[in-house]
Nucleic acid binder design. Structure first.
Lengths: 190, 190
DNA sequence: TCCTTATATGCAACTCGTTGCATAGCAAGC
DNA sequence: GCTTGCTATGCAACGAGTTGCATATAAGGA
């Protein structure tokens, strides 16, 4: 399990509340690890009682107060230990692939609309990634302190992960085109 | 949840026992949906009591008897209904991507060995897929009955799913090379 | 004033998935 | 005779993830 670790990484990149984390899990880090707010609050509680994170009450005006979490030494150590622990290449869950194989026993052409929907979703996500890349990773590297940083690890590594997302979406779009061409070879009905 | 559906597809492709299904989930369908034997036996029980599958005791010689499952009408209907139900594009879980972003707060170069391990695993899987493609999808299309089938849906759809696996592995290998090049730009330690 | 929306946090129940363990038949080798 | 290994099925406990619901502050519009 690695939700704790995804949260640690996100909090190291920038401290924040459970609510803010939940929003980040809808974009950014969420492209590579999903979580709902309920899960995040529950895990944050556990991380707090384990001493992995520190909490600070932050009064706000115009909106409810929040609890801002930041990574404690124990959390940093836990992340480091996880990083040094080998993990197995991910176990996959591709509903769509199962559906495509299953379509052989139903009407294959009925899947076309579904595959097109997925293709659109991937096209949108690709556009979103590319926009983010242009926004955040073009122009000179500037560290958060404003000083020139020739090798800003945080930025470089975020960028390579984003490039992975871009490559994945491009691959998916090409493959879904292949799937559509294959499905189109079958006549309607069976 | 779709383990039921993955099992239905696999049983439609060929009836078999829980044990045999578990082995298929280590290859073939398992490349796109993972499951352990405990999970499979539990779900098969439920599917049986729901009338989705039929069971037949098959005595064997030289080994324990087995229960052979095959898809019942209710199961076929359930699969069909699932196929017509739109699903959301998958939620992703990429430990490695989280690790790479986390490495910015530790020693980035310490991840190199781990990334190389993953690269090897993907290279092996690619080789495995390519061998399977050569074995099963070259030469003339021949249906199970031995007759020429100009449009064998089952075979065509299995092939396009396999091509997806191949494209995925190729993309991953290229990306991991990119990751390795990025990590190499950081000196040892920090 | 009421309704909606956004911020912000949380509980409870349930399902799904993983891990560890248990059992049993039979073959092959030491 | 004993151990190892493969086939074959299963239980129990736990941990992770999902779904539905609940609560509270406050801004903005109908």
């Amino acid at each position: 399990m690695a939700l704790e670790h995804a949260i640690l990484v996100s909090l190291l990149e920038k401290p924040g509340s459970g609510y803010e984390l939940a929003r980040r899990f809808e974009r950014s880090i969420g492209y590579f690890w999903t979580a709902t707010h309920q899960q995040i609050y529950r895990v944050l509680k556990r991380m707090e009682s384990d001493g992995w994170v520190d909490v600070r009450d932050v009064p706000q005006q115009g909106r409810p107060d929040k609890k801002e979490y930041s990574v404690a030494d124990l959390g940093r150590a836990a992340l480091s230990s996880w990083l040094h622990d080998p993990i197995e290449p991910e176990s996959v869950r591709h509903d769509l692939a199962v559906k495509i194989r299953g379509a052989a026993f139903d009407d294959p052409t009925a899947l076309i609309r579904e595959v097109e929907r997925h293709r659109l979703a991937h096209r949108d996500r690709l556009a979103h990634y590319l926009a983010g890349e242009t926004r955040d990773f073009t122009g000179p590297a500037v560290s958060t302190a404003g000083a020139k940083a020739p090798l800003d690890a945080e930025r470089e590594l975020q960028h390579v992960v984003l490039r992975g997302g871009i490559a994945y979406e491009r691959m998916m779009i090409e493959w879904l085109d292949d799937v559509l061409a294959t499905l189109a070879r079958f006549g309607p009905g069976r």
